[in-house]
Computed example of a mutant assay.
Amino acid sequence: MKPSERRKARRLATQAIYQWQMTQDNVASIAEQFALEQETKGVDMDYFRDLLFGVSVHANELDSVFSSYLSRPLAELDMVDKAVLRLACYELTRREDVPYRVVINEAIELAKAFAAEDSHKFVNGVLDKVVKQLKK
């Protein structure tokens, strides 16, 4: 598996998770829609599906992993930031094959690509605290 295929899967999954958060549509329908309508060449689609379905199934658990490190209530968190943090926490807690440094770097890049201007700093700070807690 090439890192670039997983990177593209994360980008697509972030967008799909965001759509799911906004619409609460069926996750399987969103996955199918993305597979048909988005550019999937060079995307690890199995990884994309794992991230999307994993985040949707474990959303409340994932929120509890990072919510205590937020500077505001979870309900006030920007939806893109929430999608990125949920995806990263899914990888940190469920994908032991991915080093935590890779997870954090990828989350920062996703925040730079999709979120508000300084969101990557916020995401980095939250995930640093999550990693320290998980390593205990």
Rank of each mutant, 00 (worst) to 15 (best):
65 V>D: 04
29 S>W: 10
108 I>D: 15
100 Y>K: 05
20 W>Q: 08
74 L>I: 15
33 Q>E: 09
13 A>R: 03
68 S>A: 09
125 G>I: 00
116 A>I: 01
15 Q>F: 09
41 K>P: 08
67 S>W: 12
120 H>P: 01
84 V>F: 01
14 T>Y: 08
61 E>V: 11
98 V>L: 12
36 L>N: 15
79 M>C: 06
134 L>N: 01
39 E>Q: 14
121 K>A: 04
82 K>T: 12
47 Y>L: 11
118 D>H: 12
101 R>I: 07
90 Y>Q: 03
63 D>M: 02
115 A>D: 07
123 V>R: 15
113 A>P: 01
11 R>P: 11
112 K>P: 05
82 K>H: 10
52 L>S: 09
57 V>A: 07
26 N>R: 14
39 E>S: 14
95 R>G: 09
107 A>H: 09
103 V>S: 06
45 M>H: 15
126 V>D: 10
99 P>C: 00
86 R>I: 00
133 Q>P: 06
27 V>Y: 02
27 V>E: 07
129 K>N: 13
14 T>L: 11
60 N>Y: 05
26 N>S: 14
89 C>V: 01
44 D>Q: 04
100 Y>C: 03
10 R>P: 04
132 K>E: 06
123 V>A: 13
119 S>T: 08
80 V>K: 05
109 E>M: 10
56 S>Y: 02
6 R>D: 11
67 S>I: 15
127 L>F: 02
80 V>L: 08
129 K>F: 08
78 D>A: 07
126 V>G: 06
44 D>P: 05
111 A>Y: 10
4 S>F: 13
34 F>D: 06
135 K>C: 02
87 L>G: 08
63 D>I: 10
77 L>C: 05
126 V>F: 02
130 V>Y: 09
113 A>V: 09
92 L>R: 15
36 L>E: 15
29 S>A: 05
47 Y>P: 00
8 K>M: 05
90 Y>T: 02
47 Y>G: 00
59 A>V: 10
90 Y>C: 01
128 D>F: 03
28 A>W: 04
64 S>A: 12
62 L>R: 07
57 V>C: 02
83 A>Q: 04
3 P>H: 00
34 F>I: 00
75 A>D: 14
106 E>I: 03
38 Q>N: 13
39 E>I: 14
23 T>I: 15
43 V>L: 04
90 Y>I: 01
107 A>P: 07
73 P>T: 15
83 A>W: 02
9 A>P: 11
94 R>P: 06
53 F>Y: 08
103 V>W: 03
112 K>V: 05
40 T>A: 05
77 L>F: 05
54 G>L: 12
134 L>S: 02
30 I>T: 00
7 R>S: 14
56 S>M: 10
36 L>Y: 10
64 S>D: 15
56 S>H: 07
95 R>S: 11
36 L>W: 07
58 H>N: 15
73 P>V: 15
58 H>T: 14
77 L>I: 03
96 E>C: 00
52 L>G: 09
8 K>Q: 11
17 I>W: 15
59 A>H: 04
134 L>G: 03
109 E>Y: 10
114 F>G: 13
45 M>G: 07
48 F>Y: 12
13 A>H: 07
119 S>V: 05
26 N>Y: 13
124 N>I: 01
32 E>L: 10
27 V>H: 03
103 V>K: 11
3 P>Q: 00
52 L>W: 08
43 V>I: 06
49 R>A: 04
46 D>L: 13
62 L>S: 08
40 T>D: 10
